[in-house]
Amino acid sequence: MITFNIVLLIFLSVATISGALVAVTAKKTAVAILASGAISLFASIFFLVLASPDVAMTEAAIGAGLTTFLFFVILRKTESHHAEK
């Protein structure tokens, strides 16, 4: 069980760091927003594995849910009508 947890944590760490790299280097803003949402999702699984479900829930609700959607709403508001999609 402990080894499984360690494998899971290593996988999550690699996934989080690669998500961060994608978020920084992505050409399209939408991809960067999705990548930063994925980071929050991985972080919330992190918290769950580390036995803090309350923090995991906050991270999933605010980091992965609310912030990602908010960025999309603002992206839609700021990109002009004829800009390239």
């Binding site: 479900p53 309350d54 995991a56 829930m57 906050t58 609700a61 605010i62 849910g65 609310l66």
Partner: peptide, 9 residues
């Protein structure tokens, strides 16, 4: 797990 802040979010 969870509570006012999470539910509100």
């Amino acid at each position: 797990p969870g509570g006012g802040f999470q539910g509100g979010a």
